[in-house]
Design a protein around this nucleic acid. Structure first.
Lengths: 214, 214
DNA sequence: GAATAACCGTACTAGAGGGTACGGCTTTCA
DNA sequence: TGAAAGCCGTACCCTCTAGTACGGTTATTC
């Protein structure tokens, strides 16, 4: 928010820091054990504090979970906004986007978050809603907007930019992501680059304008 | 296995039937509430029987879960094998495959299974392994094999059939699947057909041989 | 230096969960 | 017809969990 730590007293600053620490510990625990598998007592223990303190910050397990989701999606969105900020050649931009995106969805963090969301979005509809509204949807919109500009510029053939964006996003959630999710595979930077190049190639074959296609 | 119900006494037949009933009830419960969120007592209650009976069939919750996974993946694989059995025109076959596949991954069953697997494969590596080894991998192999035959026949351009298969599978786990998974969206048959046609179109643009491309 | 906000540890309630034990009823099967 | 397998209901044990209560301790603030 608009608050600067410097304008706060030590008490308030410590409180904010402590809250953040709780959220981060809880996020790890939720990602590792799921919602039902995570106990408040365990969080309090790992935090080092007492249960009273924990309940002082979050009046219930559900509130803590909501705070974790808020925190994680905000960070997710910030990173992806950043990825899409720069512009350059179509192939280079798409490749860079895919690298960043695949890196995220094959990282332990991203994978854990995806697991958590997939598991709980059935029981807690707002979990999926928050994740979708702050993750996939805005990223898809930005990507589609970028593609529209490329279509106008003639580097992409006339087509539906929204579908093109969906294609790239789906391809980025491909083999590497599935193997990470299901088999615990640890993708190397080389793996990620290779997959990003494959995705970019598939995309260019389907959507690049004929004169610029390889 | 190779056993025929007719060769069994009533006792054995009843026992098998009862076991199957338990597995099906447990599957629903696991898909709806997750592993940790499912209680053995609840399963026993829904089964109509007593806890003793339940423990008589499965000595622990983990054993029951494993049985559920085995059952679900076997059915999954059988259905997908069936889908890939017929052959015809490239575009028609791919479209039919996509329709079946997308129908499955946007069905409540398929979605629940995917949720369950995604959630538990972190804690139980064998869950993801079983699912992968009997779902995505054999399907990918069959699809790649089919694509190789099409490449040989000249209807697909020379390319890596494995990557082409990955592309189709990834695209089928696209927008519709994500919306079902995260937002509880109920896809209509029309939605599924539209997505299948879009996937097929993207695939053909990227992999059809130039003379047969539209 | 005193009021106070935050923290700690611990002990507690109340409930739910996995898993066990047991005595009696029903069905199969020889 | 009678043994045995299977099923049922219930009461039970032990552990874990969410959440509460409370008295003492540290750090901030005025």
């Amino acid at each position: 928010m608009g608050l600067d730590v410097k304008t706060l007293g030590k008490r308030e600053a410590n409180k904010l820091g402590r809250r953040q620490a709780i959220v981060e510990i809880a996020a790890l625990s939720f990602m590792e054990h799921g919602y039902a598998g995570t106990s408040m007592s365990a969080i309090a223990t790992e935090l080092g504090g007492s249960k009273s303190t924990l309940w002082g910050y979050f009046p219930s397990k559900e509130d803590l979970f909501a705070a974790v989701m808020d925190d994680a999606t905000a960070e997710f969105r910030a990173q992806l906004d950043d990825v899409l900020a720069h512009k350059g050649e179509l192939a280079d931009t798409v490749l860079a986007f895919c690298r960043k995106f695949i890196t995220k969805v094959t990282s332990p963090d991203g994978c854990g978050l995806y697991r958590l969301v997939a598991a709980e979005s059935g029981r807690f509809p707002e979990v999926g809603r928050i994740f979708s509204s702050r993750g996939r949807e805005p990223v898809g919109r930005l990507l589609a907007h970028y593609f529209q500009s490329q279509i106008d510029a003639g580097t992409m053939r006339p087509s539906d930019p929204v579908r093109a964006a969906h294609m790239v996003l789906s391809l980025c959630l491909g083999d590497l992501h599935q193997r990470t999710l299901l088999l615990g595979f640890r993708a190397s930077p080389q793996d990620i680059v290779a997959e990003a190049e494959a995705v970019t190639a598939d995309f260019l074959r389907a959507y690049a304008s004929s004169e610029s296609a390889g």
